[in-house]
Amino acid sequence: MSAISVLDRVERFLIGLFGTAALAVGTYQVIGRYVDQRIAFAYGEEVVVYFTVWAVFLATSQLVRTDGHVRPDLVLRLLPPQGQRWFEIFNCCVALAFCGGLTWFALEVATGSFDLDERSSTGLEFPMWIYYASIPVGAGLMSVRYALRLYRYLFEFDPSTMIITTAEH
């Protein structure tokens, strides 16, 4: 298995795991609140946020892989294959610039939070750097995906699979 398909599997597994964990904690909180007060866990909603945001940022990387980020493709559809290719190359460059920058600055946010020992202001006192780390990780993975995508459009362009067609489904 190539490194990238290992990455795919790990990502998907973690997205599913964190999402399910969020669901489990959310449910547990409801039960704790309304069914049996003895097992109540006051900070459930907070933990749901941390799990979900981690899952969401990992998913942003998967979305680059599957071209799932929503975008208006009106103009692209009107272009011939080579035109689309150059537009996609341009898009990859803009995406790399943004995601690269986001990775860098979000890393600053996360490490800053770690250095300050920032905790959530609830009684849970959750170390916030763990939450913040989801963004540089997600943005970093997106950068990798966009770099791969750029490479494919530059050097392995295949009009039969890599363009948007106007055909109705």
Binding site: H69, V70, R71, P72, D73, L74, V75, L76, F87, E88, F90, N91, V94, A95, A97, F98, G101, L102, F105, A106, E108, V109, I135
Partner: peptide, 30 residues
């Protein structure tokens, strides 16, 4: 129009405008 994903359009515009108005870019990540 170039078909860039919307979150990138918004994020990139925000980054350019933050930069031009002298706002620290780390603010976007935060």
């Amino acid at each position: 129009a170039a078909g860039l994903p919307i979150f990138l359009v918004l994020g990139f515009c925000a980054a350019v405008l933050f930069g031009m108005s002298g706002q620290p870019l780390v603010g976007i990540a935060q």
